[in-house]
């Protein structure tokens, strides 16, 4: 598994943009998820006492990734947590649609212990693009901060 992410300087300046890449579609999902996790808090300062399993289905991988990232933003508020890590498993069905089995691990917000970062409001579709590039995949995401 090989995936990367980097935050972008010159896009949507009031918000937070990142680009993630990976050898496979599953890798790029993992890279984008890591970027989102890092945007909210330093994962090294966050424990794993809380976990949530998320199942999703969509017609195409771009919509599936968008929904999955949006789910993490939702759980951040609904459970009052930040995240340490995630596991993502993708599968394509016979009808061509895609399914995701994800698990996310984190803990309740603890100001004194964790290095908290941005309170992400939402995942936007502004300049949102998941594409195959060369031997791998990349995605660009703008988060509303």
């Amino acid at each position: 598994m090989a995936h990367t992410f980097r935050f972008l300087d010159d896009i949507a300046m009031a918000d937070l943009a990142f680009e993630a890449g990976g050898e496979s579609l599953q890798d790029v999902f993992q890279g984008a998820t890591d970027a989102l996790i890092h945007a909210m808090a330093d994962p090294q300062t966050v424990g794993t006492a809380w976990q949530q399993v998320i199942e999703r289905e969509e017609e195409d991988p771009a919509s599936l990734l968008f929904d999955w990232l949006s789910d993490l933003v939702y759980w951040k508020d609904a459970a009052g947590v930040v995240f340490h890590r995630s596991e993502v498993r993708l599968a394509q069905r016979k009808d061509g649609s895609w399914s995701l089995h994800g698990a996310v691990y984190g803990e309740q917000v603890k100001v004194a212990k964790q290095e908290l970062r941005a309170d992400i409001k939402g995942v936007t579709k502004h300049l949102y693009r998941l594409a195959r590039e060369g031997d791998g995949w990349t995605v660009r995401v703008v988060l509303d901060v």
């Binding site: 935050f7 972008l8 300087d9 010159d10 896009i11 949507a12 300046m13 009031a14 918000d15 937070l16 943009a17 941005a118 901060v145």
Partner: peptide, 11 residues
């Protein structure tokens, strides 16, 4: 109104 991205400001 911002004139520098958040990422750049943090750098």
């Amino acid at each position: 109104g911002r004139m520098m991205s958040r990422t750049q400001a943090k750098r």
